[in-house]
Design a protein around this nucleic acid. Structure first.
Lengths: 203, 203
DNA sequence: GACGAAAACGAACGTTCGTACTAATTTGAC
DNA sequence: GTCAAATTAGTACGAACGTTCGTTTTCGTC
């Protein structure tokens, strides 16, 4: 199918554009122009602006999963994987996977007061993401790497806050050290609740 | 002057609207409708959309300073004032000072990739805000309430991240405990670097 | 109460938005 | 190579956008 290929290339560009201009600022005419398509031809792939926005969010999610989350899951479960996720997140900002910074942070703040299907979808994705963080934390506890009395929801909240804060400081404030600051904070927070690895042969 | 009064009432509404729809989603026609003004009559007060946006950001800043920041400065300098600022921030979200959540978090993410006067102004305000946080931290050190080896920029980054993270979790994820989580994290972080108050009469 | 200034209005501008149709082209299977 | 189906282009629409302009209303001062 040719259509599917076109659709994908449209979405690639739509994700980049939306990360810069916002999902509402993403415009069918402009998107068509940039791709050398006609407005109507592009429009036919989605049927409505809202469908285009939903597809764009979905595409961004897939890019995120493919480029950040899945690779981090390669790390051995427990503390190493938790750290790998955090490292991957900060590297994701540094690498500029989305030209306008974290797509989901931007979309979250754009749609947090805009009821509708797009908001619902973003909310679901963000709940999934926080849930994945909590799961990684719980795993680290199960592996005996993290103290048992740590509340996964609390820690996930804090880690995610540092990520968003890093994105904010890096992109809006042009704070070059934002990522280092976030890294320092993440590591300090995790080290503080880490269960010391048993000395070699001490088991 | 009647004009000044009208201008203020326009901006009051503009701030609320922009916190819900974004500064770009803020529209002159809609704003005029809601206030029972004509589009052209409203427009005349600002001369351009960008000027309206700038004035709206300025008005939001004044509301923030009047309702959150200035009151917190009443607390005695040092640790109490630092805590007061943090408390005031979380209460500010809970109170719903802006209907769409923190105006500045939203504006920051909306404009972090949109060059222009509005972005520059937001950046300046956010730098001022972080600067104020750093100053409060430094004061707490000077008063001997906080450990000397704490980097004010680092700690301010972390506190601000928790604030933004709370706003995100509270508004997009509808996490009722978001503010408590943030409060817990803030207090834990600050307590950890607090210099224990000398016992009564121990001086 | 008259008068000049300030403020608000109403209509229109050109542009762009999202969307709806129909016509032309391209594609892939036979 | 043919033909139906899938895909793109073209054109048009009503609404809303920011902005301009000339007129009318309201205000503050004497």
């Amino acid at each position: 199918m040719k259509g599917e290929r076109t659709r994908q290339s449209i979405l690639e560009r739509a994700v980049d554009l939306a990360s810069l201009e916002g999902l509402e600022g993403l415009t069918i005419g402009r998107l068509a122009d940039e791709l050398g398509l006609s407005k109507s031809g592009l429009f036919a792939h989605f049927g409505s602006k809202e469908e285009l926005q939903l597809a764009t969010v979905e595409a961004a999610s897939q890019r995120y999963i493919a480029e950040i989350f899945r690779p981090a899951l390669q790390a051995p479960r427990g503390y190493p994987r938790l750290i790998a996720i955090c490292d991957a997140w900060l590297a994701y900002i540094k690498r500029g996977v989305f030209p306008g910074g974290c797509f989901f942070a931007a979309a979250s703040f754009e749609f947090d007061s805009r009821p509708g299907a797009v908001r619902d979808f973003i909310r679901r994705l963000m709940n999934d993401w926080i849930g994945a963080l909590e799961r990684a934390i719980r795993m680290a506890q199960d592996e005996g790497h993290l103290e048992r009395d740590v509340d996964p929801a609390q820690l996930a909240f804090e880690l995610n806050s540092l990520f968003f804060g890093a994105n904010f400081a890096y992109h809006l404030r042009n704070d070059e050290q934002a990522l280092e600051k976030a890294d320092r904070a993440v590591r300090a927070r995790l080290e503080a609740v880490r269960v010391a690895a048993p000395a070699a042969g001490a088991r």
